[in-house]
């Protein structure tokens, strides 16, 4: 069943057409890579899907056309977006508050928020960082927390922008394991050949504004 679809999606930035008539389709629980050279518009594509960039054409979530802020608000609570730089994403004072931010905003009960937070701390092996201020985390720890913070929303889909940046081997393997086992639709934007080789997923190549299916 369809989760996200774009129809002739075009984006102009600074007078330049960054995305040109992009037609993209992602099914529920489907996992894909979006690869491409620097500055090819991969992050712009992800931000457009999340409703942060003006576009022409259509974006559909579960068959419904996204037309205004309300639609995108709903989409954002169902598709988790992990930013390229964790410092742009993590703003709470401690790891625990960071993980609780989304479920609290979604109006979940305290009990459910606690369950989600505990489960994320456990799953990502960051229980020992619970009370640690965000600015004290290392780059790799910030990356894990940023993914865990999105997972506490229990989204149906995930978009991860360069998720292996700053990860050491142990955390890289943990991420690969997580991506393999997660039962959600996933879009990974990456340059990392090791990650692409580790996961045998469909690949889309973005260059000069055109998105093409590779495998």
């Amino acid at each position: 069943m369809e989760l996200i679809r774009t129809e002739n999606l075009s984006v102009k930035r600074g007078g330049r057409e960054v995305l040109k008539n992009v037609n993209f389709f992602l099914q529920e629980r489907e996992k894909v890579f979006i690869i491409g050279p620097n500055g090819s518009g991969k992050t712009t594509f992800a931000e457009t899907l999340m409703g942060f960039v003006e576009f022409e054409g259509g974006i559909f979530f579960k068959g419904k056309r996204m037309e205004g802020e309300e639609d995108f608000y709903s989409l954002r609570t169902k598709v988790g977006y992990v930013f390229q730089n964790p410092d742009d994403q993590l703003f709470s004072p401690t790891v625990e508050e960071e993980l609780a931010f989304a479920p609290m905003n979604l109006g979940y009960s305290r009990g459910k928020v606690k369950t989600l937070v505990e489960s994320a701390l456990e799953k990502f092996g960051i229980r020992h960082l619970r009370d640690t201020p965000i600015y004290k985390l290392s780059g790799g720890q910030k990356r894990l927390v940023s993914i865990a913070a999105v997972m506490t929303m229990n989204p149906e889909g995930l978009i991860l922008d360069e998720p292996t940046n700053g990860l050491d081997e142990e955390n890289f393997l943990m991420l690969v394991d997580f991506l393999r086992s997660v039962e959600k639709a996933v879009i990974v934007i990456t340059h990392d050949k090791n990650l692409i080789d580790a996961l045998d997923w469909k690949k889309y190549y973005l260059k000069d504004g055109y998105l093409t299916f590779v495998k």
């Binding site: 999340m50 942060f52 608000y73 977006y81 930013f83 703003f91 931010f101 609290m104 937070v117």
Partner: peptide
């Protein structure tokens, strides 16, 4: 630019103008 991205990150996690505190 960072402020802009942080705001986007907050919107991505259901922020509606009020900072809710867990503990």
């Amino acid at each position: 630019f960072r402020a802009d991205r942080i705001y986007k990150a907050m919107l991505c996690r259901g922020f509606k103008g009020e900072f809710l505190v867990y503990r």
